[in-house]
């Protein structure tokens, strides 16, 4: 066999394999979306909950003195970025639920009996699905903040918002998928989701700036991944975005826009690397 022939064969093999992975991933993603369309309550609740935050919290602190908020913005504007991030975050936190139910009801076994080209397709389908849902929910909230008069980012700003949300969603999805395989059942998973959700929101700069917080809470907020997502988005809403802009005055130092994004990237890649051995063993 000639060398080029051999190469063709390999290319063909790869091509087939890629097609197979695409086919199975598409089919599995389609299933998740069919579930969502027929049972849209999670989607709706995922939008309603942040909406309630936005309206109630916005009203509660509407008269907060503007000079205490960074850049002298109104509280509604300040809160907007926090709620957008919170929406994406709590959406992505649910990523593990479908997989947990499939584990419990034995549907996962049905998938594992099939000669899947790669079992990553199962994980990939979940990531695609949850990313789409979280972004959709965030977009709905962004539209609401716009209607409430809290502004709209520039094109570059919009790109920053998208990239930031994507990286946060990836990181949180990885964590949730890891939990879905590590925990014994959906009750435990829901419990973890429940107790992660609110404390992470409060211990971030979503609802109040660091200058409002006691030192210990300030420390927590400056270690909280949500803060690294909120601040770039808040900056993107506030005006022209610059990667070198200092966004967080943390007790341990100053973090720039680029710093925030880098931290989120390292976090999402790191989390996927951490859960990989677990997924490999559970899907082996």
């Amino acid at each position: 066999m000639t060398k080029s022939n051999n190469l063709d064969l390999r290319k063909n093999f790869l091509q087939t394999r890629m097609n197979e992975i695409a086919q199975e991933t598409f089919a599995l993603t389609k299933r998740l979306f069919l579930q969502l369309i027929r049972r849209p309550s999670t989607l709706i609740v995922g939008i309603l909950q942040p909406l309630i935050w936005l309206i109630l919290f916005g009203a509660l602190f509407a008269n907060a003195p503007q000079e205490l908020l960074p850049g002298g913005m109104s509280y509604g504007r300040f809160l907007g970025a926090g709620v957008i991030v919170f929406t994406a975050f709590s959406g992505a936190l649910n990523a593990g639920l479908p997989i947990m139910f499939d584990r419990e009801f034995g549907f996962l076994n049905r998938l594992l009996i099939a000669p899947l080209s790669s079992r990553s397709s199962i994980v990939l389908a979940s990531v695609i699905y949850i990313t789409a849902i979280s972004l959709l929910q965030s977009a709905a909230i962004m539209a609401t903040t716009y209607l409430l008069g809290y502004g709209w980012p520039s094109t570059v700003g919009l790109l920053i918002v998208l990239v930031t949300l994507l990286m946060l969603v990836f990181a949180v999805t990885a964590m949730s998928l890891g939990l879905a395989f590590a925990l014994p059942g959906h009750i435990e998973l829901i419990a973890v989701i429940f107790i992660t959700n609110l404390p992470l929101l409060f211990a971030s700069t979503a609802l109040a700036p660091i200058s409002y917080m006691p030192t210990w809470l300030g420390w927590l907020a400056c270690l909280n991944p949500l803060t690294f997502a909120i601040e770039p988005i808040r900056a993107a809403y506030a005006g022209p975005f610059d990667l070198d802009m200092i966004l967080i005055h943390a007790p341990y130092g100053e973090v720039t826009g680029l710093g925030c994004l880098s931290i989120l990237m390292v976090l999402s890649i790191g989390l996927f690397l951490i859960i990989r051995p677990l997924l490999n063993s559970k899907l082996a």
Binding site: E24, A27, L28, L116
Partner: peptide, 17 residues
Amino acid sequence: KILTGLELLELQGDLYH
């Protein structure tokens, strides 16, 4: 439960490429 029998068969067919 939420899928129809046909959708489940189609999914199965896709998993077997």
